[in-house]
Design a protein around this nucleic acid. Structure first.
Length: 400
RNA sequence: GGGCAGGUACCCAAGUGGCCAAAGGGGGCUGACUGUAAAUCAGCUGGCGUCACGCCUACGGGGGUUCGAAUCCCUCCCUGCCCA
């Protein structure tokens, strides 16, 4: 896994140099580095985008460093403006707590639970006074915030930039100070928060500024923008192997590079080989994508599950066959085609059902059903579109 | 507090009395094709029904004018800009 991105070469070099020095220093003091990354418990499920910094943390862990998994339960109350050019809704403390609960559990799919320190930033942030905030804020100018791209954009478009949003960077900077972190990991959207806010605040508070490791952002399944649940282009960490595999196959070809670099265990050399293979037409992008999907599913579900997921994909989507396990539906006396679609939860409204029937998307054992009002022909495998299947049977009749 | 410009569907955005369930784009869905749930092309994209027709809900909230309102008026809420 690779993919650091600093935006400018000077910063990258400075950070590399500092990291080297800090490593030596820590070695002399006989201590590991303290590495952290903060996560926003804005939603309750993690997705592959979250795994990018988490796997970087894991690497540090394996090298014997101390890793802090910080849950931003306090900062979530504001909502990080970094990755949006829009105000994010504030969550209630209850929502945040609810989300935070399942968070760590999922994180341990990647991190070593034995070696991970979990912290919540409400622990120190909730204790700061207004006077503290003023003191911290006096390190920054309004201009520094206004030149940040995402604030700038909104400013230019005449959209509101709320004062409390600027606190986010300050709070995050304070996290780094409270943790006395040596290294902080984050995506390119965290550049300002880490490099400007955190380092400045730490210096001001009289401790050594932490070193920034800035990672590329994983695009979502649309291949365009950052993977995020709210945009609906995410692949949940807890999705089934089949689903994860399928979603990975739906990623546009152009995003494959980023996925290979940010999500796999492959070396830069292996990736380069695959990429030139595709570029020269030696390798079929589909096959490479299948390898990619299998590799990623394997990381989270193991070899066997990944193999099964691939089989499922080939059977259902390439050969248009039906999957192994499909839900059952008991046909009721006198039901029409439309009613079955509805009752088996294959569609969410009658209109949607009619539309799909009109579009020839509804098949019973391969036969297109074209009349929504016709009586349902009888038992068989009902397929709606490419992904939805239900086995319709006469179970009530046979039972009696 | 004053002046001006705004608030439209999942998102962006047009529309400024009837032809508006609302252009266009994005997203999503479906089909064709394929090398894949990629790309490309086409269609669909509020709900209910006796479904080429009718009804209900919807253009920030409430009220009004009108045969008829996203469009006009009043009022309230929210946002931006300028002034204080």
């Amino acid at each position: 896994m690779q993919g650091t991105a600093y935006g400018d070469e000077q910063l990258a070099m400075a950070m590399r140099k500092e990291l080297r020095e800090r490593l030596l220093e820590a070695q002399n003091e006989g201590r590991p580095l303290r590495v952290y990354c903060g996560f926003d418990p804005r939603t309750s499920d993690l997705h592959l985008g979250h795994t990018v910094p988490m796997r970087k943390l894991r690497q540090f862990q394996e090298l014997g460093h101390e890793v802090v998994f910080l849950i931003g339960n306090f900062t979530s109350l504001i909502g990080d403006p970094s990755d949006k050019d829009k105000l994010r809704p504030q969550l209630t403390p209850e929502e945040v707590e609810e989300n935070a609960r399942t968070y760590a559990e999922q994180a341990f799919k990647i991190l070593d639970p034995e070696k991970t320190i979990i912290e919540y930033n409400a622990k120190w942030l909730s204790k700061l006074t207004f006077a503290d905030l003023i003191k911290l804020a006096s390190n920054f100018t309004v201009q520094q915030f206004l030149t940040r791209e995402n604030f700038r954009k909104r400013w230019d478009k005449g959209e509101p930039v709320y004062l409390h949003e600027t606190f986010y960077a300050i709070m995050q900077g304070y996290d780094a100070y409270a943790l006395r972190a040596d290294v902080q990991i984050g995506g390119t959207d965290q550049l300002f928060n880490i490099v400007t806010a955190a380092r400045k605040l730490m210096t001001f508070m009289g401790v050594k500024p932490n070193i920034a490791i800035i990672l590329d952002i994983l695009p979502g399944t649309d291949g365009e923008v950052k993977m995020s649940k709210s945009l609906g282009n995410h692949i949940p960490l807890l999705s089934t192997p089949e689903d994860m595999y399928g979603k990975l196959m739906s990623v546009p070809d152009k995003a494959m590079g980023a996925y290979m670099r940010l999500l796999t265990r492959w070396t830069p050399r292996q990736i380069a080989e695959l990429e030139t293979g595709i570029a020269q037409g030696r390798l079929n992008p589909r096959d490479v994508k299948m390898q990619l999907a299998r590799e990623i599913v394997e990381i989270y579900h193991g070899e066997d599950a990944a193999a099964r997921a691939e089989e499922h994909f080939v059977r259902v989507f390439q050969q248009r066959d039906i999957p192994d396990e499909i839900p059952e539906y008991c046909l009721q006396e006198g039901e029409t085609v439309l009613q079955v679609l509805r009752n088996a939860n294959l569609v969410s409204s009658n209109s949607e059902g009619r539309r799909l029937i009109q579009q020839k998307a509804v098949r019973l054992d391969g036969e297109v059903l074209s009349d929504p009002r016709a009586a349902f022909p009888g038992p068989g495998v009902l397929r709606v579109g490419k992904r939805k299947f239900v086995r319709v049977s006469n179970c009530s009749a046979t039972r009696e």
